[in-house]
């Protein structure tokens, strides 16, 4: 009896969040999941027509553009998140020292996330301009010649997209890790240092494990978000040149909101959801195995 009440009490912590989420999303989720088994094309007044699994079959087996966009997303996403994580961790470690002017440095470093992504992408498009852009102007001043064509080359364009994403989202890692570092108890570090451990050892064996949960959460959130990468690509390259920067969210957006194949877009979205779930679970499992080992 008592344990039942205790259980109920514990559940009451999560109930508000769960109920709120269910109330908000139940209708859209059921609706779009149903829709993914139908043909519904807003361009023609035919209404819903049952499609069975044919939307999914097409996405899995014959839509090569979808497959290509998945690979592109993988390349851009993994490089962006890794870059952001490493830079963010480095900056957080530096900022967790005792520094004069730390407040102002931190504030300045967080500024990129405050700019609306649409404006950021437009600004970067201007900065990347081969002739009138500020980046190539600086390269010219430093004597590096005319500078590359940042968005116009199919080889460089994905990298340029990664750079904009990293510029904007590195502060997220930095702040989360900084907050994590601030709440770590100091004693283990000091005793380890007294015991003669080198600072890299302390970092690797004491600091990092304590940050682990924050790191996992931040990495997962960014991975999920980078798969939804859309506005930046939309404005910087529209997915070009060729297919070099066409991310899966951009493609799904086109299918749903430019071509208005709403049913097919829903099935692409659920496939994408399945892929993200598998990746995220795999990611968590690998990290957990590490913990056991």
């Amino acid at each position: 009896m008592k344990s039942g009440r205790k259980k109920l009490k514990r559940y009451s912590f999560v109930l508000p969040a769960v109920i709120l989420l269910i109330v908000i999303t139940i209708f859209p989720l059921v609706y779009s999941l149903t829709l993914s088994f139908f043909h519904w094309d807003l361009r023609r007044p035919l209404g819903w027509r049952f499609a069975g699994f044919s939307n999914y079959a097409r996405a899995l087996f014959s839509d090569h553009r979808f497959h290509r966009s998945l690979i592109t997303t993988g390349i851009i996403g993994v490089s962006a998140v890794l870059l952001e994580f490493l830079l963010g961790l480095g900056l957080a470690l530096l900022l967790s020292r005792k520094l004069v002017g730390k407040r102002i440095l931190t504030t300045l470093l967080v500024m990129p996330v405050m700019i609306s992504p649409v404006v950021a992408a437009l600004m970067w498009r201007m900065l990347y301009h081969e002739k009138y852009g500020a980046i190539n102007a600086i390269l010219r001043l430093l004597g590096f010649g005319t500078g590359p064509s940042w968005l116009g080359s199919p080889h460089l364009a994905p990298f340029s997209v990664v750079l904009v994403d990293a510029w904007q989202w590195t502060p997220l890692f930095m702040m989360i890790l900084l907050a994590g570092l601030q709440s770590i108890p100091i004693e283990p570090h000091e005793s380890a240092l007294v015991d003669g451990a080198s600072r890299p050892q302390v970092f690797w064996h004491i600091t990092l494990p304590m940050l682990k949960l924050s790191i996992i959460a931040a990495l997962l959130i960014r991975l999920v978000d980078v798969i939804k990468l859309f506005d930046t690509v939309f404005i910087l390259t529209s997915g070009g040149p060729g297919s070099s920067t066409e991310t899966v969210s951009y493609y799904v957006y086109l299918v749903g909101f430019r071509f208005f194949r709403v049913g097919y877009a829903a099935s692409l979205s659920y496939l994408l959801l399945a892929i993200v779930v598998v990746i995220a679970l795999g990611f968590l499992r690998i990290l957990r195995r590490r913990e056991v080992g």
Binding site: R43, R65, G242, R258
Partner: peptide
């Protein structure tokens, strides 16, 4: 005709790959 945006997008997807030298 209906679907113009999709027809044009499919065309664009292909020719930009030729211009980019990848197809």
């Amino acid at each position: 005709i209906p679907g113009t945006a999709e027809y044009m997008n499919a065309l664009t997807y292909e020719i930009t790959q030729v211009l980019a030298g990848t197809k």
